[in-house]
Design a protein around this nucleic acid. Structure first.
Lengths: 198, 198
DNA sequence: AGATCCATGTAAGACGTTACATGATTTG
DNA sequence: CAAATCATGTAACGTCTTACATGGATCT
């Protein structure tokens, strides 16, 4: 379970923060590019955690900024967080629209494939730069080092692979109005030769 | 957009299949380990696609097995699929409960960290084996090669990284009742020294 | 003065999972 | 005959995103 509640509790480990702060942290802090959540899920999560007694709120209204609510973990909250973290680790989820699209290169126009690849390379390069940059600016800890390093090597491997294979992908793509060689997403070894019949 | 509808349309490119077949394909076919979906989302998606005229159903009742519904893409469906695929490519989503947990190694008992790492290594090794195995048994196509290869290099990089860093992660973990060195998930360079005050 | 950032929240809806209900067929 | 696999579907529920509503503060 890594729902927004866990994200919030994690962000509050050893620090006081508002919903807004948490969102910023997810966007530009140590988890930049790895995890994200919208205000629409963060605020209700905080409200519920407060109700449950896992976090405590302190209003910082007054002077400058409007009504800011700073949350802190309660002992209960920290215990709950650590207990949940120690529980069963759910499977990872990776969903890549780009990879999915690449499965169908042979049915897509070549320029389109080219454009997608360009955008993906740019996106991964950006992410890589962001990871390396924020890593440098962060106090080192074994966990942080590991996670940032993971993002780094993994992105590099992906980029490298894509660069090496882009020619093949583009070559397989459809040139303008070539009758698309639609091959099914097969399940292992389709034993019937296409000629077959009877 | 890679919702279950797109998954189904993709699975039906150049082939006839039932909801059950699609599920199997996702589990053990070319997308094994990369994408999955439950029956609870596949069947309603197929029903809706049929309503919209993107796929056509053919009942294969009769002899052996019960009432099987085989779906085929209509020209409209194929056009819709290709058009959507060619549209804007949404961001990738990667959610790793394991990586998240590793951010908090310093607060978790060492044995627990060790166990998590062992399980993760095993999980990635399994996935890698599955990828390599099914890749070998599949008719080669540029798209398939690329995607399988991507999974392969990416998993290897991750595994390698984890193996190299496990000692450091375990060393940072909490030994039995050591007062946990809780360090916040910081946002870049927290400039205030903890002493500060006024 | 207008744009942008800070700051919180709600409501509607999309999307998906789990669990349930059902039943035939195949295999050990 | 029991267990697994084939096969389809529904209902409840959880979770998250988008879009909306609101308002002060800061910057240009």
């Amino acid at each position: 379970m890594i729902d927004v509640r866990m994200l919030c509790l994690g962000a509050l480990m050893g620090r006081e923060a508002s919903g807004y702060d948490i969102k910023k942290e997810l966007e530009r802090g140590s988890s930049a590019g790895l995890i994200d959540a919208s205000f629409g899920s963060i605020y209700p999560a905080l409200a519920r955690l407060a109700e449950e007694g896992f976090i405590a709120a302190r209003s910082e209204g007054g002077r400058g900024r409007g009504d800011k609510k700073l949350y802190t973990l309660t002992p209960d909250g920290e215990a709950f967080f650590l207990r949940t973290l120690s529980g069963p680790v759910p499977d990872e989820k990776y969903r890549s629209p780009f990879l999915f699209a690449m499965l169908f290169t042979s049915c897509l126009p070549r320029e389109r494939v080219r454009a997608m690849i360009d955008r993906q390379i740019a996106a991964w390069e950006d992410k890589l730069a962001a990871v390396d940059e924020t890593s440098a600016a962060m106090p080192p800890s074994a966990g942080l080092n590991f996670v940032r390093g993971f993002a780094d090597v993994t992105l590099r491997a992906g980029l490298d692979h894509l660069r090496r294979h882009r020619a093949a992908l583009e070559a397989a793509a459809k040139v303008s109005d070539t009758p698309a060689p639609v091959r099914p997403l097969t399940e292992a070894v389709p034993t019937e030769p296409a000629v077959a019949a009877e």
